[in-house]
Nucleic acid binder design. Structure first.
Lengths: 192, 192
DNA sequence: TCCATAAGGTGAGTCCGGTTCCGCTTATGT
DNA sequence: ACATAAGCGGAACCGGACTCACCTTATGGA
């Protein structure tokens, strides 16, 4: 589909600018930004925006997808540098902190979990796989119970990140994360 | 504010009909229903709808608030009939099943957690209190750790319910619930 | 029972914002 | 340089939330 021809130079620039502007707008202003505003702050007209993105929703999805992409590369790195249990712990906190930086990531995860749009299926799958890798490693090491799957944990995480907004949510997020980890250790062979 | 005069008879009927129609529409059709449709299926005109509800959002909020009201009465009943730990377990599952019936409840919880609208503050507070009651009872009995607060658990639950949609989510929800319970028991004096 | 009157209902019209469309502009390859 | 197709701009369109000027009816007092 998008393998027609390698986008013209200025077109790619605009596309990039739009994604960046949209990301910025979503982070500091929620999802209710007007397409006009996004287009303007990207320095193009609405028509251009619609040339690149089927619809407002499509643009949002694209922004989220990129965000998730970044996060999906983390588990591999962490597993290379830490024991599985520690890698898992760090990844959960990474997620929480990511969400702390702006609401963006939390909104992204939320959408990934709540939407049935096929566009998110891919992200969901890869994120689930990433978590599965972490859990499997821990299970193999005997420090994490083996009866929880990546997708399941993903759901729980989506939940954690869905909370943002209110005062003090960050501490609560960390607490819940710890709670989940305790639960995950609970049935492990070498439970602490 | 609303203590002006006790609504005229037909007015109350219409208000009731609107709430009911809206609830129905939200359950089976998501949040994207047109106000016109809600009004029509309640047997009134849009003007009437707007006489009763400031805005479309306000109507949604009102529906959710009632939904939450129902759920908030449960903890008291459960504590009267079961040991704290069991009451807590049942309440969590009740929540999950509520969400299973229609997406309504999950959407409600989601909104409660994600919105900063003052309208939800009240619901959030009461729901948090309800959970605190359950947790405190368990803590007093020594079967639940004492360092987790109601609001914190509420957030985790909001997360669990945020997941609906995809195939097989119900089982996953139950599993996460069990996970949380294990985590809650983890630091308790009489841990199992 | 009947009237006065204000609460309540109506729905065509307004407004706003996402989406389309067509004529103009410009990168790119020869 | 030129041809040409890819891109861009932005006015117009359209659907859907919301308003308002006017009509209908519940209600309470004579």
């Amino acid at each position: 589909m998008s393998s027609s021809r390698p986008l013209r130079a200025d077109a790619r620039r605009n596309r990039e600018a739009l994604l960046s502007a949209a990301r910025q707008a979503f982070l500091s202003g929620g999802i209710n930004v007007h397409v006009e505003d996004i287009a303007r702050s990207a320095g193009v007209a609405v028509g251009t925006l619609y040339r690149h993105f089927e619809t407002r929703e499509a643009l949002i999805e694209e922004v989220y997808r990129k965000e998730v992409d970044d996060l999906c590369t983390a588990p591999g790195d962490l597993l290379n540098q830490h024991a599985p249990e520690e890698a898992l712990r760090r990844f959960l906190l990474l997620l929480v902190d990511h969400a702390a930086v702006g609401k963006g990531m939390s909104v992204a995860l939320e959408s990934i979990m709540a939407t049935d749009s096929p566009v998110f299926d891919d992200a969901r799958t890869r994120m689930g796989d990433a978590l599965t890798r972490l859990l499997d490693a821990g299970s193999a090491a005997g420090t994490i119970r083996g009866d929880v799957t990546g997708p399941t944990l993903l759901r729980a995480l989506g939940g954690i990140c869905a909370m943002r907004v209110t005062e003090g949510w960050l501490d609560e997020a960390r607490q819940i994360t710890a709670l989940l980890l305790d639960g995950l250790r609970h049935g492990a062979p070498r439970a602490s």
